[in-house]
Design a protein around this nucleic acid. Structure first.
Lengths: 198, 198, 198, 198
DNA sequence: TATGAATGAGGATTCATTCAT
DNA sequence: TATGAATGAATCCTCATTCAT
């Protein structure tokens, strides 16, 4: 509906950027099915053909977005973790960074974590390994053993993902204070990871 | 390929039943994109047009499936909760029922909890309120106050949802023992709800 | 260029016929690449979508034409062969029927004999076996042995095919009297088959 | 898949040569539809645009290939004809050269003799006159009169073309011994041309 | 209650070609 | 001599939906 505002454009690299931005925007507002080469093209003011000058396929375009997303998320989490405060605090900072990323950069988050593998079949496996890096951040705190760290880190990650996902999907009761909920959930997840009840 | 086995059929209500069954079958085997009116029709042995005799639109058909899903989930959780064991145990049983439902009836789970509101715009809001009932199950255990119960219940729910969602999306490290992970995650979430660290 | 004259149409079967006719016409004037669902549709006065009501795919449409062609050719050759004249005469009559078919029903002939297998990959093999039936007509006259008959028949067939193909492709010198050329070529081919110099 | 090996290249004439070579290669491996300017360009290591520096259009490129083909075919037939053996033997040698060319350089043969005139509309007529030269080779043997020679030569040519075309199109029974069939067909055609039964 | 016929919009992708530099 | 950027037209095919019967 909000197509055809053609103003942007510019030379090569600018157009590529504009295409990526528009793709992200559409992803954000309508999800994967709203990603149509023709719609992106008309919204960005070029031909559908031109998209193929910069991306080999529609999937390649999405992969580019995913890469961007991981780079952003990873750098934010690394920044949160590096510090010399108490372990629990740093873990919670990382968790806050993760949740904030999910809620602020929804479109990125969705294609990074909420796309079914069948829809993204052609996505190179090594790219997904990057996702693990954010997990590493959580796992590294569970000092006991690598295996135990992986498990605890995964549990934290799933808890945070559920929080983000349900908030995004608007499945959380509107009466709840959003910030308080987030903070409590993070607290519960991180505390359990550092001193697990299991 | 496995379409067109037209034998079933039947008059009125039977046909409606057959359509719903086939839709569910397709949903479970191919996910949302496999839901095509024509394919359902040809598989069930009627015309695509006939579907519109029983459902106003494809969305209406999906809504019917969602209702089915909620009924199933709610009844399973109620069964898990009703009992006289210790609170924590019953809460964990409810959580297990929830997770099992998500992993066994993946397609249902997806349309119930993972479909973007924009994609399901026309889905009647009151239907979603049913989703709350599974939340109620979790909330009811946190006796302190209704508001506190809602918050704690929500936190449990998000944790479980994250677990299910990442398992479905195959974003969980394959080295982890699946059952052990689930049990640990449930334990952590439920323990925190009953005796919260916050 | 000569698209959009939409007059025809009519009820189901008529439209199907119209589609087939238009497809043949286009095949005739522009060859295989001129066969476009959209062009056929606009020429025949319906939507491209409607074509798929009557044919599963573009190939299926062509297959239908091929079948029609073989039926026509086979019946014509059978009619020519059945008789009680001398062998050579009946063989020549069959040859005349073959050549006439090729020159009169060019479009059919082309898709039957001049399409590369790669272009028609999906064409069911059993359909091509029908082509052999016209060969059988030629082979049956070489009484010596089945194997020898197959060889002689094939040689006649190739000679006639070359004649038809070059005439169709307009690669034959315009100075030549067309009818006389045909008659001479048929005579040479058939004589050699009945009393071969090899 | 086997595109993009860009190493060759070179200035001016070399690039033109490289383009033609690649075009021929593609033609021979994938046939006419495999001839795409962009694919040729990427395989040869230049831009699609560059092709237009040396050829006015894709058709012009094909015309160049056709010319090459005729030169090759003509020289081979001339070589076969020049000699002092008996007439029939030399005629058969020419026929063998023709058939061998068709089966070995299939892609060339196709664009030379099997392309519809409508598809090659813009091909300069005078170029096709070269094709006649191979016909001349066959015609020259029928000494009686030029007109009679043209006719007999044409008949030989059509017979050979039919043989080649059906072999190429894989419409010849696989049970037949290929070489034997060819030799017999050549024998029949040439014998009839030298001492015609008509 | 059910259908057969038809549609318009849209899907991703490839094509030969042009133009300014 | 060569290119990078861009295009418009075209490809087959599938979708949910409607309407008269």
């Amino acid at each position: 509906m909000t197509d055809t505002h053609q103003p942007p454009r510019g030379t090569g690299a600018e157009l590529k950027r504009a295409i990526l931005d528009e793709a992200r925007r559409r992803l954000e507002s309508g999800g994967y099915p709203a990603l149509s080469t023709r719609k992106i093209a008309s919204a960005v003011g070029c031909t559908a053909t031109s998209i193929y000058l910069y991306f080999n396929s529609k999937d390649a375009l999405i992969h580019a977005l995913i890469e961007e997303g991981f780079e952003d998320l990873n750098s934010k989490m690394m920044a949160a973790i590096e510090g010399d405060g108490p372990v629990l605090e740093r873990l919670k900072d990382a968790a806050r960074a993760y949740v904030r990323f999910g809620l602020e950069r929804t479109a990125y988050y969705e294609i990074m974590f909420m796309l079914r593998p069948e829809q993204m079949e052609r996505f190179p496996a090594e790219s997904y390994r990057r996702a693990r890096r954010s997990l590493d951040a959580f796992a590294s705190f569970a000092s006991v053993s690598p295996a135990e760290g992986l498990k605890r880190g995964t549990i934290v990650l799933t808890a945070l993902h559920g929080l983000v996902a349900l908030l995004i999907a608007q499945r959380v009761d509107a009466q709840l204070d959003r910030e308080e909920l987030i903070e409590s959930a993070i607290h519960a997840a991180c505390t359990a990871a550092v001193a697990p009840p299991f």
